[in-house]
Design a binder for these strands. Structure first.
Length: 517
RNA sequence: GGGCCUGUAGCUCAGCUAGGUAGAGCAUCUGACUUUUAAUCAGGUGGUCAAGGGUUCGAAUCCCUUCAGGCCCGCCA
């Protein structure tokens, strides 16, 4: 039985029905970013690359709804932002002062993330489309067929028709807020308006003087770009929702074919550590980006169908996910895997967006990185530590970049989300307050004797510890505990053999000498 | 009030878009190596495919009903 990855199924249909396919996706950067927005971008890019893989010339556009109004002063905004409510976010000042405007401020981190995920899209700012007059034709049609639109909205949503419905809202040139047009005065390209601020003015639909309301704007974008397929959250997919009205507006008002819908489920953030819950914090979209390697995040969204809800696990689950990604990578390059792994291996492949590495990249087990990151203060030290146990000579530039990204993610995770169990710190001296018995000291003395001349590798070290421990009253178990105690101040930790091997031999022996005296 | 999605091993999920003996990873258990600890290898346990009915020679898969969970729309008409 041949099974297909969901992205391939969609891609095939898109390729079969469109000559010049265009995938559209977008975001409304009115406030803080959610991981779900990343799912949308990745879903779009995956379909794009899958269509490209079928030999079609395909584009992915990323529409930033920078002309949307600020709906309310969110809690995270300073009180003075009250005055900007109702204004387009492209004309509201940046809260931090470092970006061009409000929209840039909130979308920039997200664009960086999208870029790091390898999404190849054309960024389009909606406010620029309005300023360039791209919406003029659509706006003109909505004024002329306003009654028809009202009827469609009434029929599809089942709500009572609103005779005052405005498909287009001008921006008041005086106060800068969206307001209501006077329909009778419309004559292309002008419409007059009476703003609640008292100003009476005239808007030019060919300029950034106003905007279509969402339910008419969305299909207008389909018309402008000739959209073939578009992923969107289930909120738009609900019966009577904006896709339902949009497809009729598209067909009956603008006379175009609506795009193939790709509805996706939302991402939930779960598995938040106990510590965070008690502090009342939670994981934001940016947190997820910062603590998940981009290739792994890509894979996370690709391994399941868009219709599946994803619980983002910011605890130990993130380690499993990274390990699974690496495993699929190995299977892909091995060229052999079971049928059950088909889907996941293909997910790995698609996650590369048609830029699969030529050969198996350098893989350092993610869990090991968690340990190494805690032993080394910076990336150079990480490399030094890895060099003691891994052959790093064949690492390419690409390998190094990936490694550095991963170390950064691991650190971010360790700082705020990792459970205490995996955390440790190598003390610069014997942890203060640690009391050693005579037996402990004798054990360390013997340990030093045997380690002085030994080969500094994982296996030898393990052997020595085990044997010395057994010969001592501490026993093997007690020996392990004592060593953890003098190094990291805990009674358990990473496997000792590899752990000690990745540390400097002299440093370790010196510590044991201290412990023995 | 309306709608969508989900329900397969302890957990995360494949398998549903070709109807044909139920799968993977993790976890757990056992054994390699005289090294029990968060980076080894090999094997094992483990599921009434939510429930019921229907179609079929044959259903996790298609149809109907029910139950459970999650979410969305009704706040931008």
């Amino acid at each position: 039985m041949i099974t297909m990855h969901w992205a391939d199924v969609i891609a095939k249909e898109v390729a079969d029905t469109c000559d010049h396919p265009l995938i559209a996706t977008g975001i409304s950067p009115t406030g803080i970013i959610h991981v779900g927005s990343l799912r949308e971008a990745i879903t779009g890019e995956s379909v794009r690359s899958a269509v490209e893989g079928l030999g079609k010339d395909v584009r992915l556009i990323y529409l930033i709804d920078s002309f949307d109004p600020l709906r309310k002063r969110y809690d995270f905004l300073p009180p003075e932002y009250e005055q900007y409510v109702g204004m387009p976010i492209s004309r509201i000042p940046c809260p931090c002062g470092k970006h061009k405007n409000y929209a840039h401020h909130f979308v920039q981190p997200f664009l960086d993330a999208v870029d790091s995920l390898g999404v190849k899209c054309e960024i389009i700012w909606t406010h620029e489309l309005y300023e360039e007059g791209k919406f003029a034709e659509a706006i003109d049609m909505t004024f002329k067929k306003r009654q028809q639109i009202i009827q469609i909205l009434h029929e599809v949503s089942g709500k009572e028709a609103n005779p005052d419905y405005a498909p287009y809202n001008p921006v008041c040139e005086k106060c800068g807020r969206f307001t209501h047009p006077i329909f009778d005065t419309y004559e292309f390209p002008y419409v007059e308006y009476q703003c609640t601020c008292g100003h009476h003015g005239k808007a030019d639909v060919r300029k950034g003087d106003g905007k279509l309301t969402w339910r008419c704007e969305w299909p207008a974008k389909w018309m402008i770009f000739g959209t073939s397929a578009e992923p969107f959250g289930k909120d738009h997919a609900a019966a009577g929702g904006s896709y339902d009205t949009g497809k009729r507006v598209a067909a009956e008002i603008y006379g175009i074919k609506p795009p193939m819908p790709i509805p996706y489920e939302f991402v939930q953030l779960k598995g938040v550590g106990q510590m965070h819950k008690s502090l009342g914090c939670s994981v934001t979209g940016l947190d997820a980006i910062n603590m998940t390697p981009p290739e792994v995040l890509n894979y996370l969204f690709l391994r399941v169908n868009p219709s599946k809800a994803i619980d983002y696990d910011s605890g130990l689950g993130i380690l499993d996910m990274a390990d699974e990604y690496d495993r699929m990578e190995r299977l892909y390059f091995a060229g052999e895997h079971t049928e059950a792994e088909d889907n996941s291996v293909r997910a790995y492949e698609i996650a590369q967006h048609n830029h699969v590495p030529k050969q198996l990249p350098l893989q350092i087990p993610y869990r090991h990185l968690v340990n190494v990151a805690q032993m080394a203060p910076d990336f150079d030290c990480v490399l030094q530590v890895l060099d003691r146990t891994e052959d790093m000579s064949k690492a390419t530039d690409e390998d190094m970049k990936r490694l550095e990204r991963r170390v950064n993610c691991v650190r971010y995770w360790l700082n705020g989300f990792a459970p205490d169990m995996v955390k440790f710190m190598v003390y610069p001296t014997i942890p203060p307050g640690l009391e050693l018995t005579m037996n402990d000291k004798i054990f360390f003395k013997e340990l030093v004797n045997r380690m002085n001349d030994c080969n500094w590798d994982s296996k030898t070290i393990s052997n020595i510890i085990s044997e010395t421990g057994k010969a001592s009253p501490l026993g093997a178990k007690g020996a392990f505990k004592m060593i953890y105690s003098v190094l990291i101040g805990k009674t358990a930790g990473p496997r000792l053999g590899p752990f000690l091997a990745s540390m400097d031999k002299l440093f370790v022996i010196n510590r044991f000498v201290q412990a023995a005296s």
